[in-house]
């Protein structure tokens, strides 16, 4: 790992304006190393998506500085691939055309990108489905297309916002295994957002635990489980120790949030 972090957030704040402005995240400091698989774990509504959207460049922070590969983020771009919670594939394009959409927009030579698209579709287990339409695919398959269309752009970082959140438990586990496999082959910096503790520990090099809204990073927990990881790592004692640790942090955080919400005790 190099000395400069791949993603660097300093005192990041995002307030959504409106009649009652929402302070979604406040004072987030985060440094994610190059080729690190980072999971950001937090309860729903704590500002995880907001954080990811800032890194992606979909929104601008209202305070703080944000750098990816040393350069300030000003707009979305192909150097930061995003996998959305709902797949966001173009329903009028075939699986293949969805995957080559990025390279086509950037005017990359066809021969090269077509070969790359086939390779990545194969990697995510979708060869043979090139001509299918997104509406013909299951939820898990759609997310695989979403992953392939990012990989084909060869981005510096991969940003994933609860990509498996809408899948059933079994598919979800398959997708987690698939993702670790993909990551072992093509090491990229990954920011993976989830509210699922097992998912975070199973996938991550480092788990970042967020506080309730306004979100901050509460703890940084390195996961020292060997790779490649298989599903039986879930019964590993180290896994269970980490799980207990994270659970404890979250309990503490939840009761703190409850106390805050309740306000000062009545007279």
């Amino acid at each position: 790992m190099t000395d400069r972090p791949a993603i660097e957030l300093a005192r990041i704040e995002k307030v959504f304006p409106g009649r009652t402005p929402v302070r979604a995240v406040d004072g987030v400091d985060l440094a994610i190393a190059e080729r690190e698989f980072a999971c950001i774990l937090g309860p729903s509504g704590c500002g995880k998506s907001t954080l990811l959207n800032l890194v992606a460049g979909f929104e601008a922070p209202t305070g703080g500085t944000l750098r990816v590969a040393g350069a300030p983020v000003t707009a979305p771009g192909p150097d930061r691939g995003v996998v959305f919670q709902e797949p966001a594939l173009f329903p009028w394009l075939s699986v293949f055309d969805n995957v080559v959409f990025g390279p086509r927009m950037q005017g990359k030579p066809r021969a090269e990108t077509d070969a790359a698209a086939r390779r990545y579709l194969d990697l995510v287990g979708l060869s043979g489905f090139e001509r299918h339409l997104p509406d013909q695919l299951s939820g898990g398959m759609k997310q695989r297309v979403g992953i392939a269309r990012c990989l084909v752009m060869d981005p510096q970082v991969l940003l994933m916002d609860e990509p498996f959140g809408a899948l059933d438990a079994q598919t979800r586990m398959q997708m987690q295994e698939l993702l670790t496999h993909v990551w072992d082959t093509f090491k990229k910096t990954v920011v993976f957002i989830t509210h699922d503790i097992d998912e975070a520990i199973f996938l991550a090099d480092v788990v970042y635990v967020m506080t309730a809204r306004p979100g901050r990073i509460r703890a940084r927990i390195p996961v020292e489980l060997p790779r490649p990881r298989e599903i039986d790592v879930l019964t590993d004692p180290t896994f269970n120790k980490l799980r207990a640790e994270v659970l404890h942090l979250i309990r503490e955080e939840a009761s703190r949030a409850r106390a805050l919400a309740a306000g000062p005790a009545p007279r």
């Binding site: 979305p76 966001a88 959409f101």
Partner: peptide, 21 residues
């Protein structure tokens, strides 16, 4: 869908490409 627009921008589409594609 807002995310379709975001996806296109993320993949490097220009404003013109966004409108046409």
């Amino acid at each position: 869908n807002k995310n379709l627009v975001r996806a296109a921008r993320m993949m490097g589409a220009s404003e013109r490409q966004l409108l046409l594609r």
